[in-house]
């Protein structure tokens, strides 16, 4: 389950997140950014290194955390 969310209108497409992503899970075009869900491990390094706060880490809902 993808826990990282991109706030669509805030991104500057600078590529910081792509540079720190260990999984090659971010697609970044001229003005389009997308996390490839099948590769993302929710490690949150992209969230930490974003110079704005475009990327947000959403904690999983309680039910699912208990299930995990």
């Amino acid at each position: 389950m993808l826990l990282i969310e991109i706030k669509p209108n805030m991104c500057d497409f600078c590529g910081c997140c792509v540079g720190v992503c260990p999984e090659d899970a971010i697609e970044l075009e001229e003005a389009h950014i997308e996390i490839i869900e099948s590769r993302c491990t929710n490690c949150a390094k992209c969230v930490w290194s974003c110079p704005f706060d475009v990327l947000v880490f959403n904690k999983p809902p309680k039910k699912e955390r208990a299930a995990a």
Binding site: G15, V18, G19, V20, W48, S49, C50
Partner: peptide, 22 residues
Amino acid sequence: VESRVGKWAGIDTTTDFRDMEC
């Protein structure tokens, strides 16, 4: 900085987030 060509060729280009100057 957002290089992916290396990764596709099998080179690990990932920068540790602590070394990325944001």
